[in-house]
């Protein structure tokens, strides 16, 4: 039994400690928003946040995730209205949509660290996420829009 926090909920999963977090999330916790793309940490489709840091869940064993706090795409916002989620919809970023959970989780982490990223910052932070359909230009545009939305939100709150 492995205990960890998933999207704010303390959760116990009956899994072996060498099982990658991705499969524990998908097959045991039944949270299928995080995607399998390569199983080697090279495509980014499985990106989740562990204690706030973007991590490749397909190569992160449960022994590492144990006791930590994991955020998946399902827990990113209660209403699906995180500025990154809003910008993604405003600009119709997705094509097939399969890689977009991972793209969004990487983008959210980028904006946490860098509220106003340049094209180069975005390219650097997002180069680990493959999109086969080819949504890269819209991802760049959406991250910039999300940065503005986020600043507007934060301005409204202060």
């Amino acid at each position: 039994m492995t205990e960890l926090k998933i999207n704010g909920q303390l959760t116990q999963l009956e899994v072996s400690e060498d099982m990658p977090l991705l499969w524990a999330l998908r097959d045991v916790a039944k949270l299928t928003g995080s995607k399998y793309g390569c199983g080697k940490g090279i495509c980014g489709a499985c990106t989740v946040h562990i204690d706030g840091q973007p991590m490749r869940s397909c190569i992160t064993p449960m022994s590492y995730a144990k006791g930590k706090s994991v955020t998946t795409i399902e827990g990113l916002s209660e209403q699906g209205d995180h500025p990154v989620q809003q910008a993604w919809q405003n600009l119709n970023v997705a094509q097939c949509g399969y890689c977009q959970s991972g793209q969004i989780m990487s983008a959210v982490a980028l904006l946490e660290n860098n509220p106003n990223p340049s094209d180069e910052d975005i390219n650097g932070a997002m180069a680990g996420n493959i999109c086969r359909c080819g949504t890269y230009p819209r991802i760049r545009a959406a991250i910039k829009q999300a940065a503005k939305l986020k600043q507007a939100d934060e301005g409204a709150q202060s």
Partner: peptide
């Protein structure tokens, strides 16, 4: 399907 895609649904 835009909303479902960005929320993992």
């Amino acid at each position: 399907d835009g909303a479902d895609i960005v929320t993992g649904k």
